[in-house]
Design a protein around this nucleic acid. Sequence first.
DNA 1: AGCGCTCAGCTTTTT
DNA 2: GCTGAGCGCT
Length: 724
Amino acid sequence: MRTTQELLQALNSEQQEAVTAVDGPVLVVAGPGSGKTRVLTHRIAYLIAEGYAHPHQILAVTFTNKAAREMRERLAQLLDPRVAEHVMAGTFHGICARILRVEYAALGYPSFVIYDDEDQLALVRHVLEELNLDPKRFSPRAILARISAAKNQQISPASYPVESYFDEVVARVYPHYEQRLERANALDFDDLLTKTLALFDEFPEVLQRYQDRWRYIHVDEYQDTNHLQYLLVRALARGHRNLFVVGDPDQSIYGWRHADIHNILNFKRDYPDAREIHLSMNYRSTATIVRAADHVIRANRLRIQRTLRTLNDTGLPITLWACADDLEEAMRVVEEIRILVARGLRQYRDFAILYRTNAQSQPLEQALVQAGIPYQLIGGLRFYERREIKDALALLRILINPADDVSLRRVIENTPLGNGIGKQTWRSLERVAAQHAMPIGLLLRDHHLACCELTGRTRQRLAILADHLQRWQTLSCELSASALFARMLDEAGLSALYREARDPEDIDRWENLTQLASLLQQYDHLPADQGIPLFLDEAALVTDADLLNDERNHVTLITFHAAKGLEFPVVFLVGIEEGLVPHSRSIENEAELEEERRLFYVGLTRAKEQVYISFANRRLRWGTSSWSVRSRFLDDIPDELLEYGGKPKRRSFPEHSLEQRSRLHHTPTPTVRLRKGMRVFHKTFGDGIVVDVHDLPGDQEVAVAFKRHGTKRLLVSLANLTVE
DNA sequence: AGCGCTCAGCTTTTT
DNA sequence: GCTGAGCGCT
């Protein structure tokens, strides 16, 4: 346990001022790299060390679960780990889920599941189906976005304003969507916030309990809070009025998710007695990077005017690369990494490659694989979004919550257990369910479907399904979560489907299911019916950034958005082109354009020592090549901070023009022809076994099951495999 | 009901 | 270029 002296010694005067501003509302405007996380953790430690509060009277809201975990780890270092664990730290969504779990149980409400994005989308599709609306004319995505926006403004289905024909469609879908959520005991992401607010509204004594408990409330990344989160904070902070928010309006990049930059800009209006403290000294980046970032952001109008300062050295100029196409861009990035590592100047873990859209990772990945450089990809297809994982989770979800019809349908459509139950059957089930105003799952479980017009065989299949559901539910009181899960996988036919499969993708799927099972084991100390809901909450709320691995030595591939809050010695900002940064969807609108600029600013300021910026004149998009020009944002970086990189020299791997690229596969390779069962070695992935071979003219495409990295599909001509 | 083929839309960013 | 939804055939 540190003494107060020691805690404060590690801080500059601005930071000390923030840490010791104990009472009342405090706004900390913290520029990038100004030690904002440090201030937050040290302040919490200070409050505890000085006896202002017990750990469990402190609330800390962070943007990601990872940030919450790191905060707890740092507190554990500053204080005693057993003390630190009592601080409530988490995301808004996570904290609301926990509050609702506890309070709903106390009120005798039924348990709930959290519908993620994909579930929500499926639900919208089901509603469209029911209303006989064409999902091609009315994009489920767009409808869902409108519904979410409405929820964020607390507009009820009944009062949805109609100004266009599309609004009319939304207005029809929205009430059904809400009804179905309710019928399924399901909450979507927005509901976690709205239902918590509603709970506080309806039961003031519950709110008061939390107000009393949390004497000190901290909100990180306050610039990215939305209206509902703002209301939650306001409600909770009304108790002791000790609200400490930290943020940077210049780093507000989640407007599209209804984040409202005005929450931070108007903080002083909401809390007139608030102290405002600016942390403007940057400790992270070289003076060059700080100056460049400052010039970029200065062009924005919607901001608090200020200048970033640093005492760091000038450092290296920013390298700017004009590339012919996206392949050359990827090649240059990879070549640069290779050289710097080869010279012993850097390690792989020092590098991050940042891009605007997930799709851009593809050529970069390919180049990294070719060069044998290990990397980790953040974003893209996430573990919990994989098909087989969602199917397995659907099984667990209907076990915990038989009313969950979206999951039931998923099980019917995607597991052998649902064979013989098709669309027609589902439609008639829906009709019966609507008549009884009951979820299908409950009707099914309690065998109330005898009445409907189903033929003998279909009815039999449904009865088998219902029996399974009932038996699993009985078993949930007897078996551990993971034992029950294994049994469900067997009996639903998923094990048989994947375990003995030869298709490498299925082998992959089975591995993922095994991994899911081992994650579930962490909850085995609880009875299955308690452990599984907690596990499911986590599955719905963790993000990829939470899984980011700092220990292993590899290059990080990540979007600008996901990189917020992180830092790396060397950062590559790729695809800095009109249409990408700023994105074409934002170019029309001034406010959105400013957000794009902030995004670029966030990217720049992730770098500690070195920045490379690249753009390409031609880029593959949707399989066809299109022209692009450098981003307008580059014009804001003073020339003296830039260094134009020359043409790349031909090195380890050739530069392929678009025409050459299609011919690439035909290049004959003098290697051994691979056959199934051969043991091979790959520079990045290590040992593996060939599980599938596809002969191409002059080449082979093989699937290799690697011991440590799962199954990958590789082209022999590119992958540089050695046969053992 | 299930399989396989075709075609369209997709990609902004994510709790 | 890929995926997933829809359609038509068995």
